[in-house]
Write a protein that binds this DNA or RNA. Structure first.
Length: 480
RNA sequence: GGCCCCAUCGUCUAACGGUUAGGACAUCGCCUUUUCAAGGCGGUAAUCAGAGUUCGAUUCUCUGUGGGGUCACCA
């Protein structure tokens, strides 16, 4: 064991991210992981990745790799997890069945667990009846008088020790409470031998000495059940920090796949920066209090506080995400920006000169693909085709415009190849333009002769990128 | 339906019980401009409603309304 590990052995903060491998790392899950990671890192604690694969029906192959790749991209490094053994390995629940059985046996011996004598259909009838009477379904109302020996073929249920109210504190939600109806004899071990989430996560959190359970708020309602298990086990429960949900942009629904919740790696594919996703996701529900919004991951670790997380859901906002990305691109070193833009350009367009033009028009790298697809950059590489009349500015005449273009050609010819810069081109052309009734009578035809587009960068920039020869060639073509 | 939770501009949010209720995104206008983009400046826009406590309530209490969560051999 390394020195670092030894130093962290008695960490005062241990958090975990515990996804189930269902093939999809959506943004809500990522944010929960992010907050758990931030809290661990802020407190110099331990962050564990634990795979909760107790439902083999829903499992999707390749998910674990997908999850690890996602965390890696975001920079959410975990101290222990699959592929990174620690003191409580393995970190995959399906490989820990013996541990759950051990805990289950303890509960049986203490009289806090029993075999469920009913068939699935029978339980379903109880549930239907409760529903029809508009009452919540409570299995414990059907708890058998005597318990048969658990043979492992039937579900093992928790026998709630004491039906009572619970009060507890949630680091995000504040003081919470629930009445006795929140308690029930839920299933600990399924008939297939796998534990339920409700049981497995408790056992693992105890074994792994998790101090802070950062989870979605959907688990608040079942917290009393968990607390009663901890009591039955005689173990002090961890602290809870329940995150609000991310809501769909349109309505008030929890963000789901159907509502546009995307896999986090889709954002990578679209050319969003990992720092952007961290920053945006953190600020969706968290705010350090000042007016600053752009933070690097390191800065976030410093200012992060669980008690400054919002208590209710926040709607996803793509426009703000784009803004965050634009800001984070600005934070990148120049070479990094250039490298990325060139990478996203098709081979025949990898010209460093057009980088500035692209940079101020995109918020994410994939916008480059859209610009290329829309043909917005074609004119840089090929002289445009257009109808002569398009050169005319407002009420001007083609004769006048042609005359102006001739002046422009003459002026630009006076510039040497080396002096063919944006500044010099602008100086020369503006000299002529300012002598006209309307600058547009020169600037528009020049710009249009060079680009052939109604909307394009200004003529000075285009000319400097095209170079003296190509610029003059296109202007000549315009007057012939 | 039972239980639990939440409530500030359209959206994300800030505000020791005392602020002209602040910022950001979006939106609108102006400047810069030949168009687009970028940039600069400025505007519109919010404390869910009703009681109560208080000299004073966005802030504390209650009720109503609205929204969310949960009530699985899913996590």
């Amino acid at each position: 064991m390394s020195e670092k590990d030894t130093g962290k052995k008695n960490a005062s903060v241990v958090t975990r991210f515990a996804p189930s491998p269902t093939g999809f790392m959506h943004v809500g899950g990522v944010r929960t992981a992010l907050f758990a990671w931030l809290w661990a890192r802020k407190n110099n604690g331990i962050f564990i990745l634990r795979i909760e694969d107790t439902d083999k029906e829903r499992e999707v192959e390749g998910s674990i790799e997908h999850i690890i790749e996602s965390l890696k991209w975001l920079g959410l490094d975990f101290d222990y997890g699959p592929e990174k053994d620690g003191p409580n390995a393995p970190y995959i629940q399906s490989e820990r069945l013996e541990i759950y059985k051990k805990y289950a046996q303890t509960l049986i011996e203490k009289g806090f667990a029993y075999a469920d004598p009913y068939t699935g259909d029978e339980v379903e009838k109880f549930r239907k009846a409760a529903e029809e009477n508009k009452k919540p379904f409570l299995y414990r109302e059907h708890r058998p008088k005597t318990f048969e020996v658990w043979d492992g073929a039937k579900p093992l249920r928790f026998k709630t020790p004491e039906i009572k109210s619970y009060k507890w504190n949630d680091l995000v939600q504040g003081d919470l409470s629930a009445g006795p109806e929140a308690l029930d004899d839920f299933i600990l071990i399924k008939s297939d031998g796998f534990p339920t989430y409700n049981f497995a996560h408790i056992v693992d959190d105890i074994e792994m000495q998790v101090t802070h359970v950062v989870r979605g708020q959907e688990f608040i309602s079942s917290t009393p059940k968990y607390l009663s298990v901890y009591e039955a086990l005689g173990v002090t429960p961890p602290l809870y920090a329940s995150m609000p949900h991310i809501m769909a942009t349109g309505g008030n629904k929890k963000l789901s796949k159907r509502d546009g919740a995307k896999d986090i790696l889709d954002y990578k594919k679209e050319g969003y920066l990992a720092e952007t996703m961290i920053n945006y996701l953190a600020f969706l529900g968290f705010n350090p209090g000042g007016e600053r919004e752009i933070f690097t991951p390191e800065e976030l670790i410093k200012v992060f506080e669980l008690n400054r997380i919002q208590r209710s859901g926040a709607k996803w906002n793509d426009e703000k995400l784009d803004w965050f990305n634009k800001e984070h691109i600005k934070l990148l070193p120049k070479e990094e920006i250039e490298k990325n833009i060139l990478e996203w350009l098709p081979p025949e367009m990898k010209n460093p000169k057009i980088i500035p033009v692209i940079l101020e028009r995109i918020s994410k790298w994939s916008d480059i693909t859209n610009m290329v697809g829309a043909g917005e950059l074609d004119f840089f590489f090929k002289a445009p085709e257009y109808a002569k009349e398009k050169l005319i500015y407002k009420n001007s005449s083609l004769e006048k415009i042609t005359g102006n273009l001739k002046s422009a050609i003459k002026a630009l010819e006076s510039l040497s190849e080396n002096n063919f810069t944006v500044e010099n081109i602008k100086t020369e052309l503006m000299k002529i333009a300012d002598s006209l009734d309307n600058r547009g009578e020169l600037l528009h035809p020049v710009r249009f002769a060079l680009s052939g587009l109604d909307k394009s960068p200004d003529p000075f920039v285009i000319a400097s990128i095209l170079g003296k020869n190509e610029t003059l060639s296109r202007l000549q073509k315009a007057i012939t």
